[in-house]
Every structure is written in C-alpha cells, then in structure tokens.
C-alpha cells in the first residue's frame, strides 16, 4: 500500500532579478514518485536536481518564496500545511543533508533526546549512539567538537529515536566509514521491514543498491526513471534512460567515464526532454516536447526512444 504519493509536483521560486523585476524559477516540474509501506526507495541524481527540495516539500518546510503545485498524499490523504506541521517530527522524520542543521549551542546528546516522543529519551539516545558506534562521552560534546562523520551520525540518531513511520534521509552517508554506513543502512532496512518506509536521497548508488527496493533517478527537477535495483548491473544495459546509464557508467568501479556538460540551470531549461542537450542518442524529436512518464519493463521511464 502506498504510504506517500507525490503526483505531478512542481516547485517554483519567486526571485527579484533587479530592484523592481521578479522572475519565477521552476526547479521541480512534473515529478511523480510513490513510496510503499515496507519499502526503501532510493532517490539518486545530480546535485541540484531537486532531491532535497522534494524532501522539504513533503515536510512542508520550503522557504516562503516557493510556489508549489501538484499533490502529496500521506496514507491516501492529501497533505495540507496544517497536516504537515502535525506529522513532521512525529510520523514523518527528516534527516537533513547539511550538518549545519545541528544546534551549535546545544550538547548533541540533548539534541537527540529532544526528538524522542515516547519511552525514556536518555535510554533511547544511548542505545542509538551505541548502535552507530558513537562513544559514551560524545553525548556531552558540542557539534563543533565532532568530526564530520560523527555529526552525521548524530543527525541520523535524531530520526531513529523519533518513532516515525516515514524517514526521509537526505544524503545520510557521505563521509562515514564503511562499517558505520553498513550499520546505518541495516537500521533503515530493519525499520522498513517493520512496515514503515524510507526515502533514501543519496548519490551513493552502490550503498543504495544493497538495501533499496527501487531507485528513482532524478535529473533537472524531474524523475527520469524508476527502476528496480536489479537493473543496476553490468554496463547498465537493463536501465531505461540514457541518463541513468551515464550515471551508472560514471561510477569509479564502472568505467569512471564522465559525459560532458552540466545539468541545465532552472532558468534555462530546454523545451523538450531535459536531458536532450547532453544525450548521446537524442534526435530532433527529443527537442520538441517533454516526454511523458511511461511504464516500461517493470519500471517507468521518461524517454521516447527506449523500448
């Protein structure tokens, strides 16, 4: 059963370009994604492709100048901002991307305990710290005294003690050593197996493959492909979108081959397929219209060529 459904989500920002002129920048367009109960969905893609914004939209914490359209449903019910406020931190929990989200003036143990909603906060916090290999004294430290990896594990702990149904983890693993990554991912898997769900926003495709069920590939603010994890192997022959293939083949273990160019800026999006300017198999037809998302071989793709 879907626990979280995002349909046709678009997010734009109003910005002043000069003193009197405003401009609307569309950073996410036509984005669809579904999170099922008991499932881990990994969201991968270029930085700046709107992965974090999706997380912030689900929680209703976009900045004030954001304009949002489309629907987000939680357990079949459309999320209003009042509902979002009620759910965030209790049923839906976010692990933010930047370690700057820690309160610099509060000891980290106390910060983690503040998110525990039931049970004894101190026991919960100490258990989680132990699971994530944070030593005993760490709870009394301030964020500036932690290493990057320790700060990230502290952020992870806040979500793990919260008792949420949905965890949205925004890049939880960078800078952690493999043992801790494995431990954290194992926690996510156990959490999903209890019937909860995890949206794992990451660019660490390799780690995502070890625990996720499906992978959604983002580019320039929309979903290019949704594929079962089994498709990510070899030279990516089973993948549906040329961007997913390029991403896969750029990994250090699979060729390390970069494709030229960079993701289009949101104020200069191409009229047709967003990937067309960098796509090795693009034809004139690709430049005409944005391809619709369609079902293909047990997954979804937004490309007119693949069959």
């Amino acid at each position: 059963m879907p626990i979280l459904e995002v349909e046709d989500l678009s997010i734009s920002f109003k910005q002043y370009t000069s003193k009197w002129q405003q401009e609307t920048l569309t950073v996410i367009s036509g984005l669809d994604v579904v999170l099922e109960e008991g499932e881990i969905l990994a969201v991968v893609g270029a930085s700046g492709s709107g992965k974090s914004l999706l997380a912030h939209a689900i929680l209703g914490i976009l900045p004030g100048n954001a304009i949002q359209s489309g629907t987000i449903k939680y357990k079949g019910e459309t999320l209003t901002s009042a509902r979002q406020e009620e759910l965030r931190g209790s049923e839906i929990s976010l692990i933010p991307q930047s370690v700057n989200y820690l309160d610099p003036l509060m000891r980290v143990g106390k910060q983690v305990r503040a998110s525990a909603k039931s049970g004894d906060p101190v026991t919960l916090q100490r258990d989680v710290f132990e699971q994530l290999h944070l030593q005993e004294g760490v709870e009394n430290l301030y964020p500036f005294q932690l290493s990057g990896g320790m700060a990230r594990r502290t952020l992870l702990s806040t979500a793990m003690v919260s008792g949420a149904k949905v965890i949205i983890a925004d890049e939880p693993t960078p800078g952690l050593d493999p043992v801790v990554i494995k431990e954290a991912l194992k926690n996510f898997r156990a959490f999903a197996d209890q019937g909860c769900a995890v949206m794992l926003i990451t660019h660490d495709i390799e780690s995502a493959l070890t625990i996720a069920d499906k992978i959604a590939v983002f580019y320039a603010g929309t979903t290019m492909e949704i594929a079962p994890v089994e498709n990510f192997k070899g030279k990516g022959e089973a993948l549906r979108h040329p961007y997913s293939k390029a991403l896969w083949n750029a990994l250090p273990q699979n060729g390390f081959t970069p494709i030229p160019g960079s993701q289009p800026q949101s104020n200069a999006l191409p009229p047709g397929c967003l990937f067309a300017p960098r796509c090795p198999i693009a034809t004139p037809a690709c430049g005409e219209a944005r391809p619709e998302m369609r079902e293909l071989r047990d997954g979804k793709v937004r490309c007119i060529h693949e069959d």
Binding site: V44, S47, H203, I205
Partner: peptide
C-alpha cells in the same frame, strides 16, 4: 557530496 557524473 557529488553525483557520479560530476565526480568523474
């Protein structure tokens, strides 16, 4: 912190 293509 970067995606695979940017990293490469």
């Amino acid at each position: 912190m970067l995606d695979a293509i940017t990293q490469a």
